[in-house]
Design a protein around this nucleic acid. Sequence first.
RNA 1: GCGGGUGUGGUGGAAUGGCAGACACGUUGGUCUUAGGAACCAAUGGGCAACCGUGCAGGUUCGAAUCCUGUCACCCGCACCA
Length: 800
Amino acid sequence: MRYEFKTIDKKWQKRWEEAHAFEAQSDRSKPKYYALVEFPYPSGEGLHIGHPRPYTAMDIIARKKRMQGYNVLFPIGWDAFGLPTENYAIKHKVHPADVTRKNIAHFTEQIKALGLSFDWSREINTSDPSYYKWTQWIFLQLFKRGLAYKKEMAVNFCTSCKVVLANEEVVGGVCERCGSEVVRKIKSQWMLKITDYAQRLIDDLEGLDFIERVKAQEINWIGRSEGAEVRFATTAGDDVVVYTTRPDTLFGATYMVIAPEHELVARWKERLANAGEVEAYQKEAARKSDFERTELVKEKTGVRLEGISAINPVNGKEIPIFISDYVLATYGTGAIMAVPAHDTRDWEFAKKFGLPIVEVVAGGDVENEAFTDVETGKLVNSSFLNGLEVKEAKAKIIEWLTEKGLGVRKVNYKLRDWVFSRQRYWGEPVPLVYCEKCGWVPLPEESLPLTLPEVEHYEPTDTGESPLAKNEAWVNTTCPHCGGPAKRETDTMPNWAGSSWYFLRYCDPHNNGALASKEALDYWMPVDWYNGGMEHVTLHLLYSRFWAKFLYDIGVLSCKEPYQKRTAHGMILGENGEKMSKSRGNVINPEVVIADYGADGLRLYEMFIGDFEKSAPWSQASIKGCKRFLDRVAGLTDLIRGEGVTPSLEASFHKTIKKVTEDIDAMKFNTAIAAMMALVNEIYEAGTLTRNEMKTLITLLCPFAPHLAEELNEYLGETTLLSLAPWPTYDEAKTKDERVEIAVQIGGKLRGTVSVAASASREEMLDAAKADPKIKELLQGKTIVKEIAVPVKLVNFVVR
RNA sequence: GCGGGUGUGGUGGAAUGGCAGACACGUUGGUCUUAGGAACCAAUGGGCAACCGUGCAGGUUCGAAUCCUGUCACCCGCACCA
């Protein structure tokens, strides 16, 4: 048969749709399998060549599970709120909803052209009021339980998008989306207390099947550290609490540093001999963005608070207090005890300001550099801690501090609360009103959704207020609590809100009475396998795990973790090995590839391109090999003779079924395809195969190249969909060859091969090797010291 | 600095203690063709050879791309987090 992909692709896509072939079934007695891909943001750019890689991979997994008898949920939807759409709407003066609708239509067409087995009956859209009703509902539950709160704070403000960004959205000091400068601004923001879940977000990773780098990156981001808070008295009367991970070095604390924003600085102003200098430094620090502050890593700056000292609680010594921007107000207590002998930063600062460096852990040369090793070295100059190892000293000093009421063991996290407000139009409205009498009041749940009102302009204001603030008719409302006048919150939710729970909606997408029914959630959740990009590990993955845990706490979900397994795909790079981008001119358009090689050609190549988890450069030349393979599979129809088993191919078939089955589960798609290619090569060498062998081959191929597989299935006279046929099984015993070539080594070096029965004993293998004329000659006159025989693999003679 | 990862032919990549380079691309030669950016056949790590080859240097082992020690280079994430 000739492979005419242009007609075949469309024909089968239509058949699958008409048959509702890939819709998840309501029969909950069957074992379920929930395969999930990250739903796309429907940008105006259309589908990128990178999208089909994870989609096809999970499609292969979903298709195989379906063929293995599972009730499979493999859904798709749209992460439709977002800045690019809003920016486009502003520029072209169209409603963001219209832009979104158009983009989704384009994406849908492109995705359908790939022949992915998505269940389109469960399609969702985060900007649909029937969806964001439940995003708002979840927010209200968070609010009611004190996990959403409003806070005046310094935030990251993008000068171009005119919007507040979460810490996670600031990359290298610039806006993650547009690359513009980010500055600090004081704003009142809605915050979500993700920090309450920090420990659980670490602990519950255990037992999950997440790839190592995802786990490591999440743990690293949460940034747990163990130490102690220690209270220092001051000559000003107020105490200062510092956080340290090295309480063992307390005797070496020769000065103290507090953050420029620390509240005590303002309180002490009148007592300072150099108040002017201190104030100037505070102003300078406040002006700088986070990026500028961290960029000036080379040189430490700071100002001493003249006239006030702290008192080291262990030895009563007075030590100077500085303010410096190397201490962050937002971490720990915003104050540190400085131990220059054993902390690199403190050491640099001490050298610059001529402060004393007192060694308290022996083992380094503290005049030349800080000695930070905690494994070796014993405590010195530390009274009752002398002679102890660091670990012992830590325990002992904490015990001592606790007894005296001077300190306490303390755990800190780098993770900060989630800034949940955006001063933008195209997002979920926050369902709260502000009443002068009652404060922030939630809207009644039955009034949800609070829909986005029409506005004339979508531009954010220069003051950083949301465009919604200009719509007075909408803003002014009544308080649901007291009935008095109230104003609506005009900030909207961030893009991450809708994507933090979308996988739950898929379980029951048309439910009007709940975000999903308990029965549906209990059956489908957790997601069995979720694949996505590494760029979402510290954002989407962490946020959605947090929401899932919250929903677990309030009884909506029955599982503590939403995803049982998480993998990540590598990027597809341009032919030159660089990231694909318009500006580099190395972008490949999936539509063009499909036009030239068919959907199956693209699918197969994206899976064959290399290790799924690693980036790989696109190659216009290599894709031809995949197309050639599909042509060769189609051409096999000429070789079909009868039914049954072709003896010379039997073992190869069993081996290939085994290999493909196992490789799909391990995401080793490239080697699975290689195995099928090798089998096809063998069949051509044999020059013949049976009808049922052909059927086995196309069944194996079906998850990878479903259109061609279905067409060949029809060619074989079948009338039912191959996509729903049972997955082939293999007989382990038949995957083994009867005779095998084994390697013969002398002194570990390959000297020849001999053919033996696979079941050959040690003696038989050794005898066969010795009987080989070449080996015989090489062993002539040598004394064999040792003989090694590994069944099916090799024999090795160690000689003298 | 901390955390994770990678290093193998001309190229993408196989092989996780047992015949390095599966499978594919490319290249070379050939067949068929009016033609070929088609198809098919053959060869293809290097070296005339003995031999040499998985970033580099050691080690363990009968045997190492694979395990251990050290080292270099590159990529990703975080980064003044006390």
